[in-house]
Structure formats: C-alpha cells, structure tokens
Design a protein around this nucleic acid. Structure first.
Length: 529
RNA sequence: GCCCCCAUAGCUUAAUGGAUAAAGCAACUGCCUUCUAAGCAGUUGAUCCAGGUUCGAUUCCUGGUGGGGGUACCA
C-alpha cells in the first residue's frame, strides 16, 4: 500500500515541521487537465481550521513535503509528481498477494449476512442484488485483510413452513392451494417429485420436503452466481440450543423486558434507537420473529465476531432501529452491528413496471436471469450501481444488451493483454528485466500506471462506504485508459527491447489489477474472448 | 399523518465539500496489411425548484415538487 505509506510520511512531515494538524491529510486523484500524479486540497481546509491564509498554508505544506515528492502549489491546491523511482518499487510491491492487506485489520473478524431469503420459493431479482452486494463486499474486506465469514440465514421454523407444507400437499393431491398459501409454479414441479406413499404423510412432512428442495435449489443458484457462503444457518438450530429463551432471560435480567396484556415486551421507547416498545413473546406464548432474530445475532457475537453486518432490502429498513436497540439492550456496542440497506429493484417487462409478489408467483427468478444474461454480466450490472440507487431493471433490455454490458469492455482488456504476452513470448521478448534507471516513462505510460496505483484508494473508499460499486467504475476507467493506450502504442517491439520490457511490466500490472478487481466482484477474467 | 431512500445528458448510472461534472446505451463522423474492431479518435447533450451555510455546494442544512419503501402480538 504505497500511497498510504506516502500519506503517513506526509502527515508526519506536516505535523513535525510546521505544527499543522494533519491527521486527515490524504491524496486524491487530480483532474486530468492538471497533469499531476496526485493532488490534495488539504491546505485550503487546514487553513480554514487554523484561521490562516490558504495560499500561505499551501506554501508551508509544499515546503514540508518537497523532500518526498515534487510539489506544486496551484492557487491553494497541492499538486504532486511522484519520483520516477516510485514506479519500479510500486510494480514490485503490487505483485504481492497481500498488497492491499494491512496487519491491524487482520485482527477484526467480520460476519456478513446477506440474501437470507425465505425458504418458501426460488430466489428472485432482489436476491441477485443483495447477493452481488454482500459477496463483493465480503471479497473486498477480505482483500483488505479482515477475517470475513459469509452467512445465509434459513428461516425454517414457523407458520410459513406450515403453509408451504399445506400448499405442497394441495398440489400433490390435486386440491386447490389455500388462499394464504404459496401459488407459484415451482410447487407443481416439486409436487411431481413427491413419492407415491406421501398420501399418508402428515402435513409437516410435506413442509420439510418442499423446504429441502427449495433450499438446495437456492444453494445451487448461489453457487452459479459465484457466491460461496461459509455457513447456511438454520433457524431451527437456535431452538435446539434454546437460545431464544436464554436471550429472553438475559433481557429480563437487565430489567428490559416486562409483561403487559399477556405478552412479553421489550422496553425500547426510552432507548433512543427505537421509539416504541416491541413484543418479544406473543400473548399466545409464541416467540416473535424479533426475539428469535435477537438470539441469532447474539449467537453471531458469541461465535467471536467483532463486527456483524447485515444486508437488507429497503422494505425492511423500518426494522433497523428495533434490531439495533435490541442488541444494545443485550449489551453489544452499537458500532459492532451495521445494517446496509439496498434499495429495491423494480422490474420493467414489455414496457410495463411489474409488481413483484411472491404469493402471485409473478417474478423473474435469479436462475432465469443468470441463464439468459450470464453470471458475469449480471454481477457487473448489479455491482456497478450504488446500493442506494432505485434501480429499474428492464429485463428485455438486459437480455438484448447483454453483449453491450461494460463487463465485456473490462474483460477484453485481460484477453488483449494475454495476447500481448503470447506475442512477446513468440518473439523471444518475455522475461527481459526492464532497466528503469535508463527509461523515461511517456505520458500515456505514466497515466496508465498511475491508474493502477490508485486502486488502493478505490478499495479504501469501498471499505469506508461499505459499498463495492467503486470497483466496477474504476475498472471501466482503467479499461478505457488501456484500450486507448493499446491503440496508440505497440507493446511488443523487436527493435526496442528496453521499451518492450518496460511496457510488458506495465501490462502485467494492468492485467493483475483487472484480474483482482474482477475477482473482487465475482466476475471472471478470461484469457481469450 | 409520521419515518427512511432517491431526483445529474434522450435512457441507465458515476463523481472523500474542491479545479473544465464522468461513463455506457442511443444519434452522427472517421479509423482494421500492425499485440483480438467485444476496440480507438471525434461531434451533440445534464446537476428537479426556492432559499441558506461556505473562500468554494451535484455533494451539507431548511422548505417545496415528483417517485420508491416503511409505519404488525407478519416472517
């Protein structure tokens, strides 16, 4: 992480030589017309805080930093040129598997739970969005060094299982499906697999049968989507270990739970996070989903995670304060639990917005989408948007345009560089060590290399916002620079072995950045297209 | 009613409070005897409205307008 090292040095210099409070000094990518390698608006914001003249502050800062880089002070902006020796050093360091990782992050164990769709039907479009987000974030955090575990919660207890069983039984015996039941076509397919002797099964057995089929198909779709969960957690295992009752006891002990109208309530109205008291045990003696969910999250902490992240669709956002308040009541620090809300995907088909309702069985399944559009295009498409975007997904357009998905633009870089290396090998030009001391990078080479250098900033941005969408944006920009470079410069040049060696090293770094970036969003990097 | 999210080019979306707002699609003009034209170069084109904070606002605050979601002893 070389930029971070430079920033660290810069902070120390600023603080030591001039006593400027420099904790938040950082480099940014300058606009292209400036022609600098790195930029910072530090002087202007620091001047405000210190009550000094911005131009004077910039002058001081420029002086302080001139020992590590060439600095220009342009009307308060600081613009930097890296020394030429930076680049070979960077290329060498970048090859390390742990380039983005930092030791202090390795101590933090993060549990990230996502998708967790009800096991009562196939995964649909929204699950694709949640899966892309959660898995990509897990991959990015893991690249940064965190210990990350991906988890899927299977809600296999309760009334919905009963309804699922009744619905399957109805399908099996040719009876009408109950109004409150599940009407989707998929239960017809499952009914066809039910053995003859099921005529004597109790309804629960139908429920278990359907659920087993549905969960295993969900597992398969996730695998097809390049998402690998470390744990598929069954709600029933909570009850086997009596955890909801223990959670309830813990809340009672803290005097947070009380009885009213025959139900047991959690007193949250005063807590600040939530605004009203919530039921834990219904007057019939049955746990609410909330209590079981609290027990589940408490279990995550007791398994040794310091940080618990949930990814929910926006339709559940009203549940966030309750969950946070509940966990705080149990004594967990508020910052240890984070919920990421992603906005809902609405669907456009044949020019009309389609309402997605499970009961009506009227949705586009994720597996259908994957087989039509492909995992790579699908994941890139979902990941390139910020989770806050209210996406309208035009299914017809997505199918038609899958060839124009920017993912191919990025993947094509990898394929092209692979060809370059094949060509170099054929001409006996591979494996030559570049002599950096005698080579002067031209502007295009420098620009491309700098873009690779910036990658670490992109990852940190993703970490800060807990959003992976900066990665595909970055990759598209890097790909643009590469294709432009490719068009203008020949990499393999038998008449200039030195230039070839340098450019091959550069291409190696670009390919590595593309490969890593794509892998962080679960997309393949083909060698040939 | 109250709460949360959103509003950027014809369309779908980017942009730690910074410099000339960036891509893809669509439209138009050129470029394959060269390491893959799934590419390159170029043209047209945008910050919902009204205030405020700031040296500086697409970004922050207030109020509108329009859209999505939520407001269970459901899961």
């Amino acid at each position: 992480m070389l930029i971070r090292n430079l920033e660290e040095q810069a902070r120390k210099l600023l603080q030591k030589d001039f006593g400027i409070e420099a904790e938040n000094f950082s480099f940014t990518e300058p606009p292209p017309h400036i022609g600098a390698d790195l930029a910072s608006s530090f002087a202007m914001s620091a001047a405000k805080r210190a009550g000094k003249n911005p131009v004077e502050t910039a002058k001081l800062a420029a002086g302080a930093l001139s020992s590590i880089m060439d600095v220009q002070n342009t009307g308060g902006f600081l613009n930097f040129k890296l020394k030429d020796s930076f680049f070979p050093e960077f290329l060498d360091a970048f090859k390390s598997e742990k380039y983005f990782s930092s030791p202090e992050k390795e101590k933090t164990k993060i549990n990230i739970e996502f998708v967790s769709a009800n096991p009562t039907g196939p995964l649909h479009l929204a699950s694709g969005s949640g899966a892309s987000l959660g898995d990509s974030l897990a991959r990015i955090l893991s690249a940064l060094g965190y210990g990350v575990s991906r988890e899927y919660y299977i809600n296999n207890v309760g009334n919905q299982v009963r309804m699922l069983g009744l619905s399957l039984k109805a399908r099996f015996s040719g009876q009408p499906v109950p109004d409150e039941g599940y009407h989707g076509e998929y239960l017809k397919d499952i009914a066809a697999e039910v053995p003859e002797e099921a005529a004597s099964w109790p309804p629960e057995k139908f429920g278990a049968f359907a659920m087993e089929k549905i969960v295993s198909s969900q597992k398969k779709v996730m695998a097809d989507f390049n998402v690998d969960f470390d744990l598929w957690f069954e709600e029933s295992s909570l009850h086997e270990r009596n955890l909801p009752a223990k959670t309830l006891a813990a809340l009672k002990e803290k005097n947070m739970a009380y009885e009213k109208d025959g139900a047991i309530w959690l007193g949250l109205a005063e807590s600040g996070s939530d605004d009203k008291d919530r039921v834990l045990v219904k007057s019939g003696g049955i746990n609410t989903y909330f209590l079981n969910d609290l027990a589940y999250h408490a279990d995550k902490f007791s398994r040794g995670f310091n940080k618990v992240i949930d990814i929910w669709g926006a339709d559940h956002h009203g549940y966030v304060p309750r969950m946070k308040a509940g966990l705080e009541a149990l004594g967990y620090p508020p910052e240890a639990f984070t919920v990421i809300i992603h906005q809902l995907v609405s669907l456009k088909k044949g020019g009309e917005t389609v309402k997605m309702s499970k009961r009506a069985g009227e949705f586009v399944t994720l597996s259908e989408l994957i087989s039509e559009v492909g995992t790579d295009a699908c994941r890139f498409f979902f990941t390139i948007r910020s989770p806050k975007t209210h996406l309208v997904f035009d299914i017809d357009l997505a199918k038609k345009k899958s060839n124009e998905n920017p993912v191919f633009y990025v993947q094509y870089v990898h394929a092209r560089i692979n060809s370059i290396f094949e060509n170099a090998a054929q001409k006996g030009l591979s494996g030559i060590k570049p002599d950096w001391a005698s080579y002067r990078l031209n502007d295009d080479e420098r620009k491309l290399l700098l873009k690779v250098v910036y990658m670490e900033k992109v990852l940190l941005q993703c970490e800060k916002e807990l959003s992976p969408h900066h990665i595909p944006t970055y990759l598209t920009e890097l790909a643009g620079l590469f294709h432009s470079f490719y068009d203008r410069h020949k990499v393999v040049d038998e008449t200039n072995k030195q230039a070839s060696a340098v450019r091959l090293a550069l291409m190696g770094a670009v390919a590595l950045a593309i490969r890593r970036g794509l892998s962080m969003i679960g997309v393949s990097a083909p060698e040939r297209m």
